[in-house]
């Protein structure tokens, strides 16, 4: 008995060791970024990345937050479209994936193809823009973030795969009890799919949270900018001014540019954008943890 236990312990130790090393490769760069965001611009230029900055310099952050109203609005817009958008998306996608997972669904093949086709083919930027902006008038509204990207064929197929893995006996017994498909969906399928729901929801949330391209294309009202777009704008401004300083147009006094935090700004922005998501992540993470498995399947 004790020999087996010993073997178990070593084997587990190895695994944990492996993961600790792996985690370091992920955490270290991230720490460097955090540290760089708090380092003074000049020191960063001369001495490069360090784990611990010589002293904490909030200039990067101060610069970004100098217009607080703007930033808060961007946070609000981003939060709303990301969360609500994810909620709607996951709902619509799972609703579609469930029938596709049912082998006895008459339209299974054609609809799967219909969905999957969009993964590969799309009209491109101009046609999509014309439709959304000119004909559907979604430009400069909050819905542009949510509606066109409601469904992702990739995730629908992922959901379908997971749903297919659930025992058909559950569905059959529910049907015998006279349940409608929609009830089966909400009361049986969804509750058993927490891991995949959490995974896809998290990934969708992340994607939506980081979206800046939509703002670039469709939004001119600064009240509807997403966080990432606003941050990129600020960075562009600063980088451009820096560029101008290096190619000094004659007769313009640009000494105020010397205090501009360009590099630290980039890193501060990264943290500002990523920060909230990192806080959200643990909330989803509990659905990945073991123990929430399919206990009720049998019988």
């Amino acid at each position: 008995m004790s020999v087996v236990k010993k073997k178990r312990i070593t084997y587990r130790t190895w695994i944990n060791l492996y993961f600790i090393i792996m985690s370091i490769t992920f955490i270290l760069p991230f720490l460097l970024i955090v540290s760089a965001s708090l380092t003074n611009e000049d020191i960063l230029a001369k001495e490069g990345f360090k784990i611990i900055p010589p002293f904490i310099d909030w200039t990067g952050y101060k610069f970004v937050f100098s217009n607080v109203g703007e930033i808060l609005r961007a946070y609000a817009v981003t939060t709303f479209q990301a969360f609500f958008g994810t909620f709607l998306s996951v709902l619509v996608m799972t609703l579609c994936a469930y029938p596709l997972s049912r082998k006895d669904f008459k339209f299974r093949k054609p609809i799967t193809f219909f969905v999957f086709f969009t993964m590969l083919f799309n009209g491109g930027l101009i046609p999509t823009y014309l439709l959304n902006y000119k004909y559907l008038h979604l430009g400069n509204t909050i819905w542009i973030y949510i509606l066109p990207t409601l469904c992702s064929a990739f995730y629908i197929i992922i959901f379908r795969t997971f749903f297919q893995g659930l025992p058909i006996s559950l569905v059959e017994s529910a049907k015998l009890d006279g349940a409608s498909e929609i009830r089966i969906f909400f009361q049986i399928i969804l509750p058993l799919s927490k891991p995949v729901l959490a995974t896809v929801a998290l990934l969708t949330l992340l994607t939506k949270w980081n979206d800046w391209y939509t703002s670039l294309i469709y939004i001119t009202d600064s009240n509807l900018y997403t966080l990432q777009f606003l941050l990129k704008r600020i960075l562009q401004e600063v980088e451009f001014l820096r560029f101008m300083a290096n190619n000094t147009p004659p007769g313009i006094d640009l000494s105020y540019l010397e205090d501009m935090p360009v590099e630290t700004l980039k890193f501060a922005m990264c943290i500002i954008a990523a920060g909230p998501m990192l806080l959200v992540f643990p909330f989803f993470q509990k659905y990945f943890a073991k123990g929430l498995t399919v206990g009720s399947v049998k019988g």
């Binding site: 709303f80 969360f83 609500f84």
Partner: peptide, 18 residues
């Protein structure tokens, strides 16, 4: 989240670009 964002979005400062 919903309420928070709507509130914040509603607070337009008079100086922002329309």
């Amino acid at each position: 989240v919903f309420i928070l964002s709507i509130t914040l979005m509603g607070c337009k400062s008079s100086d922002t670009k329309t």
